[in-house]
Design a protein around this nucleic acid. Structure first.
Lengths: 230, 230
DNA sequence: CGGTATTGTCACGAGTTTGTCACAGAGCTG
DNA sequence: CAGCTCTGTGACAAACTCGTGACAATACCG
């Protein structure tokens, strides 16, 4: 349930308060004062969730949400809007913003917690059917085909799911147990080191396409699929 | 992607919200407050999709779903159930009565949108009467004839439907159970491995036309008819 | 009615996939 | 550098998947 949350909020008081509550709830919190700052912060690692103030100086929350949705990497990261009272709920949820939920200020910690939990829970069975493409490697869930620089790649079912998960969550380190949860399923009892072996098999399978370095080992933390060449 | 959607929901607030979101997404929305009203509304024109609240005053959502399924005209209109949280048991029941999917309240517009898209896509490419042609293999539903590179091919009824389905949905992997649903029919009880046998018979029948490699086996996933030669 | 075609099921076996382990090597710490 | 931890690697056995041939039940048809 613990998650990395990006909080975009310009009022220092509210920012502090929310951050405190989220930290208490066991989440890691990254704060940004502006849309620009937020944009920079998601460059190299993705949050699990974005808390986005509706009104921001400069680029508004709505614009940022739209921008995130347009960005392939951020497309699947859920967004919760923070709105002042009186702003139309329909407007927030509906107008092509792509927000997943909204909360009206002032809100209680409990409410915030509940919304976050709900959104995170929904995110779990998020099997998109969209084709993913990174650094010349393309994976199509529908036709179940993987191609690297034109060369077709043969993968077993598990390797396929693993690669799919990593490609839909690039630039983010996942521990072995997180990968087991996400790729194998929460309830499965499998040794953590098994992940290593599958990562290896993936790397081997990708070798002919010169994509060996796509998956980084982050010592002591887990693995990460990097969107940019090292 | 735009569709006519019948929304059956008694709570005015939710009805309004959902209607707003659907309209924003480009759909036409018809609203009904009760099962009786919904029944009347489908008398003269069919929606593309029904969004059905689980709990309704009077006739419940599940009864209405059953009624729709019994009605020949509505039999092929997909139904998505809206359920309150914690009605897990009902989910099973709902799917049994012929609902195509279900969404747990509260749900986000994005989630709703995604489900609708998925359900519509699943139903969309219905069997047409048009001739299909792929890689020199042609199938004519009207004359019930199949020709591969000039050579006529003899197929049994089931093989014919299977090939027809695959040819109208190329480059897409289907699991055995999906194929059973689509080719054999939704509620037929047949062993999954039966699909294998029919795939084999298809391949055998296509052998004289040198189309053996038309149907790929995707290990752990199902079968796929590939539009391009390997 | 007999014969043929179609269909669903099964059992067997070759070939794959997968989880686990043991060991080697790499990386960090002091 | 020594000692420790962490990761890469090759091997292996068990589990699983799929193709295949055979068979019985049923439908179809002249």
């Amino acid at each position: 349930m613990a998650a990395t949350i990006l909080l975009v909020e310009d009022e220092p008081g509210i920012q502090e308060l929310v951050k405190f509550n989220l930290t208490q709830a066991g989440h890691s919190v990254l704060c940004a004062d502006s849309a620009e700052m937020a944009t920079g912060m998601v460059k190299h690692s993705l949050p699990d969730l974005v808390l986005l103030d509706w009104m921001l100086p400069g680029m508004s929350g709505i614009d940022l949400a739209r921008k995130f949705r347009a960005d392939g990497r951020m497309k699947n990261v859920p967004i919760i809007m923070l709105t002042a009272r009186g702003e139309e709920r329909d407007k927030v949820l509906g107008l092509e913003t792509g927000a997943d939920d909204y909360i009206t200020k002032p809100f209680s910690p409990r409410e915030l917690s509940a919304r976050i939990k709900a959104v995170l829970r929904r995110r779990a069975p998020q099997m998109t059917e969209d084709k993913v493409e990174i650094r010349g490697l393309s994976l199509d869930p529908v036709s179940h085909r993987v191609t690297g620089n034109g060369t077709p790649v043969e993968l077993g079912p598990t390797e396929f799911r693993l690669l799919h998960f990593l490609m839909t969550h690039p630039e983010r380190v996942y521990s072995r147990s997180q990968l087991l949860d996400q790729v194998w399923g929460d309830h499965v009892f499998v040794e953590e080191r098994t992940v290593d072996v599958h990562i290896r098999r993936l790397r081997l399978a990708l070798e002919p396409t010169r994509h060996e370095t796509l998956i980084d080992t982050v010592r002591g933390a887990g693995y990460r699929l990097s969107a940019q060449p090292a």
